[in-house]
Design a binder for these strands. Structure first.
Length: 260
DNA sequence: ATGTCGCATTCCATGCGA
């Protein structure tokens, strides 16, 4: 099965590009982030017309995540456990029945956290703690799963064209990279890191400063496979060409194939 | 020279978030 994750930066603005991606790549599962709309405004019917069902958590203007799938989800978990007061639409789990048993998909939009040292930064670190806790719970179930989305973490110096420019940024501070590594060290495979290095792994180019033309990119969209899921990995791709389509998202899709 | 986007509102101009 083909799994994709894509921060679309407004699903309504990106509907044509999303359709083009679905037709061209034919993913079975698509994790979307930054929908930037409430659930009532999500293009559910339009995507059904393309053959995809949608589980959606929306929010006005900001955030918003979804899981598109050919087959219906058997079960969902809406929102990241660990803080009942957190109302930001950043986390959605969906469980599906595969050929070898159930598997789980998480679509997540980890907080940006800038500027560092503010409440936003503290929220990011706390959110990462909650994510690690939830990941630990899911690992204990031994049901294969993927954590997919915009992590807003540049894992290493090779994952930025100009790492020096990110030294004080909440996407690259040691504290944040360490939290990401703690998560990885629980046994996840960062599937793109396994197949790409340097610029070939970039997933984001800012709209500003002609970043795409200068290839001033970073790798922040990740697809992490649990150990049982990683055993079933058969392919990885990054669809950087979408960044050059008309009215593109600033992020591009990461795609992985699993025998599930 | 924050020079780009997308969204929202105080709505054709500005603030926020990224």
């Amino acid at each position: 099965m083909r799994f994709a994750t894509w921060n679309v930066n407004s699903v309504r603005k990106r509907l044509d590009g999303l359709r083009r991606f679905l037709k061209g790549v034919e993913p079975d599962i698509v994790c979307l982030q930054e929908l930037k709309c409430v659930e009532q405004d999500f293009p559910t019917l339009e995507l059904l017309g393309e053959g995809y069902r949608a589980e959606v958590i929306g929010q006005k203007a900001y955030n918003g995540v979804a899981v598109l799938s050919r087959a219906a989800a058997r079960e969902t978990v809406r929102g990241l456990p660990g803080d009942a007061a957190d109302e930001q639409a950043r986390y959605l789990e969906a469980v599906f029945d595969g050929a070898h048993g159930p598997f789980r998909v998480v679509s997540l939009y980890l907080p940006n956290g800038n500027p560092a040292g503010t409440e936003k930064y503290a929220y990011k670190l706390k959110w990462m703690e909650r994510l690690e806790q939830r990941a630990a719970e899911l690992l204990e179930t031994e049901v294969p799963f993927v954590l997919a989305g915009d992590f807003n973490v540049i894992p290493g110096r090779a994952d930025a064209a100009d790492p020096a420019a990110w030294e004080t940024d909440a996407l690259f501070l040691p504290e944040v990279r360490n939290a990401f590594r703690r998560l990885l060290n629980r046994g996840f495979l960062d599937v793109a890191a396994a197949r790409f290095s340097g610029a070939s792994g970039f997933t984001f180019w800012d709209y500003q400063g002609a970043a795409r033309a200068r290839n001033n990119g970073i790798r922040i969209d990740h697809l992490l496979a649990s150990p049982a899921m990683a055993d079933r990995l058969t392919g990885v791709a990054i669809h950087a060409e979408t960044r050059d389509w008309p009215e593109p998202s600033d992020h591009v899709p990461v795609v992985a194939e699993f025998d599930v």
